[in-house]
Design a protein around this nucleic acid. Sequence first.
DNA 1: ACGAGCGCCTGTCGGC
DNA 2: TGCCGACAGGCGCTCG
Length: 275
Amino acid sequence: MPELPEIETISRALSQGDNNWPSILGKTITEVNILWERTLETPSAEEFNARIIGQVINEVGRRGKFLHIHLTSDSLIIHLRMSGDILIEPEDEEIATHHRLLLIFDDGWRMAFNDTRKFGRVWLVDDPVEVFKRLGPEPLASEFTSDVLYQRLVSHRRQLKLLLMDQCFLAGMGNIYTDEALHLAKLNPLTRSDTISEGQAEELWRAIRHVLLEGIHNNGASIDWVYRGGDFQNYFRVYQRTGEPCPVCDTPIIRIVVGQRGTHLCSTCQPDPDS
DNA sequence: ACGAGCGCCTGTCGGC
DNA sequence: TGCCGACAGGCGCTCG
């Protein structure tokens, strides 16, 4: 799924409420329904049940692409992977086909983790660092400066696209926002990270922050069945626009494969580093 | 250190 | 119509 802007959108919708549901802050978890056991990364189903019941939701946040729900004494951490979504619904509603985990609250509402492809994972831990320890910087944090990005880029010799999508390098970028940022920065996805200039790193830094903020502003992107709240898909410059004109120069967008992921670019704006 | 290949899953779409 | 491969917003693992 969902990349940083989509998780941020969901996080805000959970803590503030939205058109379809109230805020979940202050609700007490009274019952659990585990519909696909492998959704639980840790702990076991039995321990999950025993530990989470009775805990109150105090805060909802985000780290990279992880949703972080702060409970009375534990952290409930959710990764939506490719097809996950979170919905708040009345507790007596019929259970949808792809619901994998339900948390039932004390006031008639429940939280559903819906995940068609079953790649999503949930952790219940007392210390969130257990899950977050390997993550790179938050791209929207003030500490993540253009110079930090430059230093990190030149300390590796990797293709830009693969590095930007590596969550240890930077937390939150996925296939869509990486393609969009590289186009905005006029950089080819195959460019080796150690060949980049300070000026190019600054352009890339601006582009990353620009596309992420643009995504958040539009409540994320909605594709197919996945998170249906946002509009950003209407503003894609290159992603899934193969054959359509580049918004900058009208050259048809091409699709290549980088790291087994479909990659969209303009061959004029983002010339191949080897040619 | 780096990147390719594969597994994990379900669903849709286009070609034959 | 049915079948079959390609592809889909992610990531962890193994293997050169």
